[in-house]
Design a protein around this nucleic acid. Structure first.
Lengths: 195, 195
DNA sequence: CTAATTACTTAACATACATCAATGTTTAAC
DNA sequence: GTTAAACATTGATGTATGTTAAGTAATTAG
C-alpha cells in the first residue's frame, strides 16, 4: 500500500529501504469510488493526495456550468488545492475521481516533519515544484499560441496513457475547446493520415 | 543595491539585518537597457534574476513571429528559465527588458548555499513556488474559461501597476488576444461605464 | 438482456476574435 | 522642434471554434 510512494522517494533520493519505510510509516491510504467528489470550492483541506492507483482530476465549474480541467492526476502524481493546503484559504476548485482511486493522505507538514529522517526531502520538493512550473508555463504558452489541433497533438504526445484512459470530452475540457470541436479535430487528423 | 532583496528576505524570514547582509553579500547586480535580450531559446544559463528596478518579460515567439508573454517580472520578482536554470536543458523562451532594469544575479545554488546562514530559506522557497503555482493555475483557468473582456478585467485588478506601465499590445499578448481585440474590449468597457 | 444513461459524431448556423489595411496619436531620436 | 518610429484605434471582412440539435454508438444499471 505504501510501496509506490516508497519507490517514488527511493528513485529520487539516495536513501535505504528502511528510511523509506520509516518516513512513510505514518501515512494512511483511502479509496474513492469513481465519481466521488473529494474537494469542492469553499472547502478547507490541509492534506494532499498521492495517487497509488486510479485517476483524479482538479477542475473548475464556471457560471454556465461548464467544467474546465486544470490538471489530471494519475498514479505517482500528487494533487491538492494549494489555496487550501498551503495558504489556508478556501479552495476555489474541485477534485473528483475519474476512476476508482486509492490515494495516500499526505498531511501538509509531511515534508517538514520527515526532514530529520530524509535530509534532502526539501530539495526534492523544490525540484518537483520547479518541474510543475515549467510544465505549466509550457501549457500556458500552448493556450496562448496554438490552435485546437496543435494543442491536441501536444497532449497525446505528452500524455499517451491519459489519451486512452480519459473520455474525450474531458480532454476537450483540458484543452479549452468543446467536445464537438475535438471530434472535428480528430476527424481532420484521421483524414490527413489516411491520405 | 542589495537593500531590496535584503528587505524581501527580512519580510519573509525572522532574521536580523546582519544575517540578511551576510546572506546576500556574494550577489552581484547588473543593469540592462530597455530592449536588451537577456536570454534566448537554446541558451543555457544557470542564474536567476531578482529585479531591483525596472521590468523584464518572459515570452515566446511562434512560427509566425508572434510574441506570447508567459510572465511579467517587475520589482521584487524573480525570473529565470527553469529548463535552463534548474534542469540544465536549453531554454525554450526569451527574457528581455521592457524598461531599463537593474537585476541581482542569483546563482542556481544560492538557496542551497545560504541554508546554514538562513535555516528556513528552503521552506520560504517552497512557499514561493507554491504561490507561483496557484497563480498559474488561476491563469490557466482564465485562459480555459473566460472571454477576452473577463481576462482583461482580471488582469487590471490583479496588476494595476503593470496596466499602466506596459504597452497595450503586450497586455494583449499576455491575455492571448490581438492588440486590435484589446482595443475594442477597452472601447466597449468605456461605453458601458459611461452609460 | 434490456433500458437508460453517457459518450461521441455530424451538420447547420452563430459568434468572438483574428486579420488586413488605413488612419490617428503618442513617444523618442536627432 | 521636427521627423520618424512605435503604439493605438477603427472598419471591413474572414475564420476557427462555439452552439444547438439530432442521431448513433457505447457503457452502465437494474
Amino acid at each position: 500500500m505504501l510501496e509506490k510512494f516508497q519507490s517514488y522517494l527511493k528513485e529520487r533520493l539516495a536513501i535505504t529501504d528502511e528510511q523509506a519505510k520509516e518516513a512513510t510509516s505514518c501515512l494512511k491510504s483511502k479509496t474513492f469510488k469513481k465519481g466521488t467528489v473529494l474537494l469542492s470550492p469553499g472547502d478547507l483541506r490541509s492534506d494532499s493526495y498521492f495517487i497509488n492507483e486510479g485517476l483524479l482530476r482538479y477542475f473548475s465549474i464556471d457560471e454556465k456550468g461548464k467544467e474546465h480541467i486544470i490538471q489530471f492526476a494519475p498514479e505517482n502524481w500528487m494533487v491538492s488545492d494549494r489555496n487550501s493546503s498551503v495558504f489556508n484559504e478556501p479552495s476555489i476548485f474541485f477534485i473528483d475521481a475519474i476512476e476508482n482511486t486509492e490515494v495516500l493522505i499526505v498531511p501538509s507538514n509531511f515534508f517538514a516533519d520527515i526532514q530529520k529522517l530524509l535530509p534532502h526531502i526539501l530539495e526534492l520538493n523544490i525540484l518537483m515544484l520547479h518541474n510543475s512550473i515549467r510544465f505549466m508555463q509550457k501549457r500556458i504558452n500552448m493556450l496562448l499560441s496554438a490552435t485546437a489541433e496543435e494543442r491536441y497533438l501536444d497532449f497525446i504526445k505528452l500524455y499517451p496513457n491519459l489519451t486512452l484512459r480519459v473520455p474525450q470530452w474531458m480532454i476537450a475540457s483540458y484543452l479549452g475547446i468543446t467536445p464537438e470541436s475535438l471530434s472535428r479535430v480528430r476527424k481532420d487528423l484521421a483524414k490527413k493520415h489516411f491520405k
